[in-house]
Design a protein around this nucleic acid. Structure first.
Length: 311
RNA sequence: GGAGGGGUGGGAGAGUGGCUAAAUCCAGCAGACUGUAAAUCUGCCCGCUUCGGCGUACGAUGGUUCGAAUCCAUCCCCCUCCA
């Protein structure tokens, strides 16, 4: 193993359809960099079109890492991603190349820069036990049980079933409350000095880009892609099955929606996704520099002195 | 020209005297967020607000009534059918 001298890293975040890939590619070519994915759905092999994952054109121009390497049957997670990206970054850095981390998943960036609680993996047994317990007792009793060992859980909304389940599972698995785990902060892999940018296009531009892109996805064979996914007969609760666009087209294939309803819903849900991403970055990454467009993002990053040195 | 139906908040659409600033759905906005995060959840959505309220509102105008989106009159507009 080479000794890593410089951890040259660039962070590019932004909502779906904001032009992140373009920025990443431009900088990768300029700086001899490698592009690393920070998007929770672009990791899945099964969804190239629907997830707007970089295709041949892009991957020929620069190395792309952590894209499409996970089988849809796998329940991927921030933790798994963080574990993988650690190695990936070591490899990129050891080659004296720049790691350009791009994506729209705010939580992934947070894990990267601030670390993640060191909770162990939850066994399938505990997972299903938790679900069974919940359906037997109902959310109110379930919640009280959790609060008994972890009072912090009071702050969760009662309807937030997913987070209640998580709290229950962690305690059942480890005997230590989730909130305690979460205070055992690890430090991030990426320092605060790494150049970064959030692409924040105006709402109208972004929304019309989303709609046009979805039409383009349909033309590119999105429906066939989702048909292939459907044919696998995977569990509906898997993350791949919940990807925006996939979910709606699955609804069409299952006969619950007609095609135009499915398309309209997919667009709507993409808009909502983008909105949530903007909210995240606005409030959780408030100190990151902003760019209103991909062009501005390139310019903004290129102006930073790091890049002059790195190039 | 004749007969009937209808005009409600950004859209759809309930409501037919007080419990109605007006159900519900959609669209939108804001927020939360530590292993499902493209997920999960919360609030707002006529205007103003110190978030308790205050002011205007249900095509228009006028009227009945203690009180009207709801009843009456006139006017304007839309739709269906018959000529």
């Amino acid at each position: 193993m080479n000794v890593v001298k410089k951890r040259r890293t660039l962070l590019i975040a932004g909502p779906t359809a904001s032009g992140k890939s373009v920025v990443a590619l431009a900088l990768a070519e300029k700086l001899n960099g490698e592009i690393v994915n920070a998007d929770a759905i672009q990791v899945y092999k099964d969804l190239e079109i629907i997830s707007a994952r970089p295709g041949r054109h892009e991957t020929m121009r620069a190395p792309h890492l952590l894209f499409g390497h996970i089988d849809g049957a796998v329940r991927y997670s921030v933790g798994a991603w963080l574990a993988e990206i650690g190695n990936v970054l070591q490899r990129v850095w050891s080659k004296e190349r720049v790691a350009i981390i791009v994506g729209g998943t705010g939580l992934y960036f947070r894990a990267l820069t601030s670390g993640l609680a060191a909770t162990p993996a939850i066994s399938e047994q505990v997972r299903s036990d938790a679900r069974e317990r919940l359906s037997n007792t109902g959310i109110h009793r379930f919640r009280e049980e959790i609060i008994a060992f972890d009072p912090e859980i009071t702050r969760l909304a009662v309807a937030d079933v997913q987070r209640h389940l998580r709290a229950y599972e962690v305690f059942a698995e480890t005997g230590i409350p989730l909130s305690v785990w979460q205070n055992t902060g690890s430090t991030g892999l990426i320092g605060s000095s790494a150049p970064r940018v959030v692409i924040e296009p105006n709402r109208e531009t972004l929304y019309s880009a989303i709609e046009e892109r979805f039409d383009a996805m349909m033309d590119a064979g999105a429906l066939d892609e989702v048909k292939r996914l459907a044919a696998r007969g995977l569990d509906r609760s898997l993350p791949v099955m919940k990807a925006v666009g996939a979910m709606e087209l699955l609804g069409f294939l299952g006969g619950e929606l007609n095609i135009s309803e499915a398309i309209a819903l997919a667009k709507r849900n993409s808009r909502r996704l983008a909105k949530r991403q903007l909210t995240w970055f606005r409030n959780q990454a408030a100190d990151w520099p902003r760019a209103a467009s991909s062009e501005e993002a390139v310019r903004l990053l290129a102006e930073q002195r790091y890049l002059a040195e790195w190039g």
